[in-house]
């Protein structure tokens, strides 16, 4: 009996459509997040993550509808992030069918929002999303607004604070590695997993199947999140799991 390392395909959603493109064979419409999520779930994804990058906060209705329809289709947990500013925002997503909600900029601005969210719905559904960039050897700083805005806040210290404040999990994205497909920033991961007791999801940089395993063995990640390698059909979730099994990492077998 072992807790399995989770593989989490991530979909960027804008105005109710998947952006960045998903090229599944046999999908009627690759831009439909519901269909893409259901497909990943069938392939054996252990969780699905939606990041809403809709520009306006007013247009949350579309996201809530997408979340509801996805939760009905995919029989695995769903994490939703992007634009969550308060415990109320989080509750709206949970009511729509999300299982966990990622809070990013709002938590950096006001860490108490994590406590408010945890009190409202329990730590288990509060994910603190941290976007970090290396600023010196062994030092990472948090950047917000899609990596454009430096904050001067130390990412590792903030991860500890997030745990204290009530986050149940950390989604740690390396802004240096994101989209580059050169591998996760395993030093950053190790720095954070060494100091927190909650699970950490590795994000940003997966390009090969070995990268996924490295994040676990070198970085200490409990889960690996990836977008590109799955979207473009480079690898399937099953291939990712088989590769991890070969490296001796326990995964959930769905085949």
């Amino acid at each position: 009996m072992t807790l399995k390392t989770r593989i989490i395909p991530c979909l960027d959603v804008k105005d109710g459509r998947v952006v960045k493109g998903v090229s599944f064979v046999g999908l009627r419409d690759a831009g439909d997040p519901v269909e893409a999520a259901a497909r990943y779930a069938r392939e054996g994804a252990d969780e699905i993550c939606f990041l809403d990058i809709t520009a306006s906060h007013e247009d949350r209705g579309t996201l809530l509808d997408t979340v509801t329809r996805t939760a009905e289709e995919a029989l695995c947990p769903l994490t939703v992030g992007g634009g969550v500013r308060s415990a109320e925002d989080m509750l709206a997503l949970l009511r729509a069918g999300a299982d966990k909600v990622a809070i990013n900029s709002a938590a950096v601005k006001r860490p108490e929002v994590l406590t408010e969210a945890a009190l409202a719905a329990g730590s288990q559904c509060v994910v603190c999303a941290i976007d970090a960039k290396m600023v010196a050897e062994g030092r990472w700083e948090i950047f917000t607004h899609g990596g454009r805005k430096p904050t001067g806040i130390d990412a590792v210290e903030f991860a500890q604070l997030a745990e204290e404040r009530g986050a149940g999990e950390i989604l740690l994205t390396s802004m240096d590695q994101d989209g580059v497909q050169n591998g996760y920033d395993n030093e950053l991961l190790r720095a954070v997993t060494n100091v927190v007791g909650i699970p950490v999801i590795a994000s940003g940089g997966a390009g090969t199947l070995d990268h996924l395993s490295d994040a676990v063995t070198e970085g200490g990640a409990s889960a690996v999140l990836a977008a590109s390698i799955f979207h473009f059909g480079t690898y399937s979730v099953r291939e990712a799991k088989e590769a991890m099994m070969e490296r001796g990492i326990p995964v959930r077998k769905t085949w």
Partner: peptide, 13 residues
């Protein structure tokens, strides 16, 4: 020394 919450997929016997 394991992490909490126990989060994810695990064997049920």
């Amino acid at each position: 020394s394991l992490r909490l919450p126990h989060m994810g997929w695990n064997d049920v016997a």
